[in-house]
Amino acid sequence: MTYAIRPAGPEDASGITALRRMPGVFEQAASLPSDRPRRMEELLRQPGQGRHVLVAVSPDNTVLGLVMLTVESNPRRRHTGGLGIMVRTDCQGQGIGTALLEAVLDLADNWLMLRRVELEVYADNGGAIRLYQRLGFETEGCKREAAVKAGAYVDTLVMARLRNR
């Protein structure tokens, strides 16, 4: 499958929202089937200095995946960024997630000089956990009953990747 990775723009708002709502995606993310494009459009129009959003798109500009890196705004945490990623259900297992993560980690390491990148992942999402581990993330803890999923309060893991400790 051919795809390109590029920065997201407001024109991607509907495509990204379709991704956020998609069965097989929304459950494992923090989104809902009721998400609307307007919020995403506003965010992409005015991401601010700390937010970096990349999308993987097919030749016809369908959004196949998205990664977002948000640098902490508190002055004492400017060396830390938070990460979130999602890939279309029907495009998973093909390396798109890895490619998006490598792109955003290159940004973090070599252009933003972040020392810590952190993320949260549902404790039962084995596939995602293994992907993050391959890219150098380590589990630091388990947040109990931290989110709603399929009618239950579920645990999320905090994982982080450090540079030059």
Partner: peptide, 16 residues
């Protein structure tokens, strides 16, 4: 209860 140790999150007195 403690749930985890988050490493190097914050600057304090010249260190993370």
């Amino acid at each position: 209860e403690q749930e985890g140790l988050l490493r190097m999150t914050t600057v304090r007195n010249g260190r993370y």
